[in-house]
Design a protein around this nucleic acid. Structure first.
Lengths: 229, 229
DNA sequence: CCAATAGTGTCTGTGAGACAGTATGAG
DNA sequence: CTCATACTGTCTCACAGACACTATTGG
């Protein structure tokens, strides 16, 4: 076997699909590329590992996201590696894609001040010029997020620290694009034991709504049944 | 942003956790390393991408597995990327781990002739010296396989093309380490519409058993409920 | 015949879907 | 008061678990 130094190394990058839900619409953070290839097209936030700054690829993803949003996402997980000769005109490339969730409120103020970063509704992506195979990456990330939404409470990471059932329900419905039963959601909140009821309630146009928050030490549990599609 | 050529590139490798079930025991293919680091320790089959041979990382995994087993696995999917400064004494490294399934019968004859490749029961791995963080990778792969076994028919890929319910049941029980109800399995086989009944039956010590096979165009569907843990 | 494995019938349990009904806020 | 939103009670339905029962082979 040849020494690793003699082997042509492919380009390796880390990109992230950062989701949020604003006004009942699922949106993705896109940045306008300033360089070739795909200069001036929209792409996912990401870049190369910096071995001196990053302990691992998770840190690369976080660092690149922080550069665009000023905040760490509430949730970050690996999606998949995409690789091949065709996906980048510069040659064989390997991209590790992450997907991440953040509360819109947490980044809203900061993102206005950052040039060329923008929340795009996932349904409007096809109207734009998207760099590389990033459209395909986003589509896979969306499918993964939808699947996980059916059997976990992942969407809480699109909400501020305190939230109501109604808000959670709206976020879930924005992700899976189907209405769900409030009752089913409440059963899951109860059964999961992941949340605590706050002693505050907030107004929302009718009866005051109970505020919930994730317990500090809570694990994200998976339910044994999916919500129905 | 600096040109990619100026950035220190980490070592990038592709490793695979190839599972099979033999004699009701879940086993992993391990190879004895012939070089430093971890010379003479057991490690996962894998290696570097060869840009001239591999269209993408899936091909790298397949190529490396074929070199050890002589066969393509029945199923191959990405597990996760592992990265960091500590996991390889040579420096910062990035490994894309795959997990794969194969029928023991398919590779049994070939594997004897390949030096230093060996099926190790997952329960006995702790007794061996395992290279890098490969033990941790195998453990994560096993968890993923267990999870998928609860909501899909993935274990059929540990069986020959034609198989009986009893064989499938045995493989599932070896993977999840719990008994399951034959009735539940039959309901799933029926509901999935993924299989066809053969017109043969085979003897297994009692009443003849119906042979099934995956339909040629079958998609692996996911059930909406898990088997109980 | 018996032992062994394959396969069925059917009851229970759990949790999601549906939806009517009640509770409580703002105006 | 009315309207809007929050929450509850409760029925149905789908499907997994349990397990007794029948079926079919070899010896």
């Amino acid at each position: 076997m040849p020494s690793p130094d003699l082997i042509k190394k492919p380009l390796f990058t880390v990109d992230s699909v950062l989701f949020t839900v604003q006004d009942n619409v699922l949106k993705v953070l896109m940045v306008k590329r300033a360089e070739a290839p795909y200069c001036r097209a929209w792409g996912l936030p990401g870049g190369f590992i910096d071995i001196d700054l990053d302990q691992n690829t998770d840190m690369t993803a976080r660092r690149k996201l922080a550069a665009k949003t000023g905040f760490a996402p509430n949730y970050l997980a690996q999606l998949q590696v995409f690789s091949g000769l065709e996906r980048d005109p510069r040659g064989f490339s390997v991209t590790l894609a992450y997907y991440a969730l953040v509360a819109y409120q947490a980044v809203a103020s900061h993102i206005e001040t950052v040039e060329m970063a923008c929340w795009i509704p996932v349904s409007e992506l096809t109207e734009l010029v998207i760099a590389f195979d990033h459209l395909q990456i986003i589509e896979l990330a969306r499918q993964r997020l939808q699947q996980k939404t059916l059997y976990s409470m992942l969407p809480v990471f699109c909400l501020p620290q305190q939230f109501t059932i109604g808000q959670l329900m709206a976020v879930i419905e924005a992700i899976i694009e189907k209405p769900i039963q409030r009752k089913s959601l409440m059963r899951r909140i109860e059964a999961s034991e992941m949340f605590e009821v706050s002693n505050e309630k907030i107004s929302s146009g009718g009866r005051l709504a109970q505020l919930y928050s994730l317990k500090p030490d809570a694990n994200i549990i998976n339910f044994e049944r999916n919500l129905s599609i």
